[in-house]
Computed example of a mutant assay.
Amino acid sequence: MTHPLLRAHGIDVRFGGVHALRDVTISVRPGEICGLIGPNGAGKTTLFDVLSGIRRPDAGGIEYAETDITRRSPVWRARHGIRRTFQRQQLFRQLTVADNLVVAQEWRGGPRRGARGHRERAAAVLHACGLDALAGSYAGALPVGQARMVELARALADPPRVLLLDEPASGTTAEERRRLAAVVRHAADEENCAVLLVEHNVAFVMELCSRVVVLDLGRVLAEGTAAEVRADAAVREAYLGSDPGRVLDT
């Protein structure tokens, strides 16, 4: 079996007296799409902050390509292929859609070294994401669903090795979710990218992800295939309480 490309082990995070993450271990392999779900306040975004370098854990560590990166900065991680989208959109609102993708590649060289190549790559990614018609539109004028797809496209503009997607389907239509899922599958299958996906739309996660990890109150509650997690009594209790008439995947 392929070694994990990104692995967090024994992660603890405290905010004062609040224990946000407790001994969390999670990994994702090249070509895998892994879902991370859990009720509000479970610690999902905090874990993403740790994985992307925004927050340093109080205990535990992060390995990337079997190298310890626990103390590496967010910039180092991004430049070495760990890319993230955010629960709250972080587009450059005053730039066009195409320029948002060009900016994502600027660290590889300025106008003299790579502007033409950057724009060619941006155009190719926009086409793959079905965004050709929006290339010249200002990012700040886009509705939520289109903005989500542009944020994903920007994460793909400089080819990633790991994608950390924080609620990418939030605010999208059914058609936009289908397109988003197709783009994520292509990144995993064709580009061998490791994908870790946080999402409240459980049906979307269950359909897209080969493996699902459930967080609850800062701990890993369950892990397995979509079918295994859906059938887990502890998971159903965490999400649904004692109501047997509700179903997890709607």
Rank of each mutant, 00 (worst) to 15 (best):
L180T: 01
S170Y: 09
S73F: 13
R154I: 03
R179C: 06
G41P: 00
R246E: 10
V247F: 12
C209A: 14
G224A: 11
V162S: 11
R230M: 13
R71A: 15
L5V: 13
R71L: 13
P39S: 11
F15C: 03
N100Q: 10
V183G: 04
R7G: 02
L248D: 04
L208C: 05
V235E: 03
I37V: 15
D49E: 13
M206Q: 04
R55P: 00
G41M: 14
T70M: 12
A157K: 01
I33Y: 01
L165P: 00
R161V: 05
G136Y: 05
L101C: 02
R179I: 06
R119F: 07
H80A: 03
A20C: 07
D189E: 15
T67E: 15
A182Y: 05
N40Y: 11
E176A: 08
A78W: 07
C209F: 08
L134V: 05
I69Q: 06
S52C: 14
D189T: 13
L221D: 03
N201A: 13
A20S: 11
R72I: 02
C209K: 02
L248A: 10
P159R: 00
R77V: 05
V97M: 06
I54K: 11
P4T: 07
P160T: 09
E199G: 04
R154L: 08
Q105C: 09
A135C: 03
G53Q: 04
L131Q: 03
I69A: 09
G43F: 10
L197I: 00
V220R: 12
L131M: 05
L36C: 06
H200E: 12
L126F: 07
G60M: 12
A133Q: 13
P57N: 11
R14G: 00
L217H: 14
V144G: 08
E32C: 07
A181K: 05
A123T: 07
I69W: 13
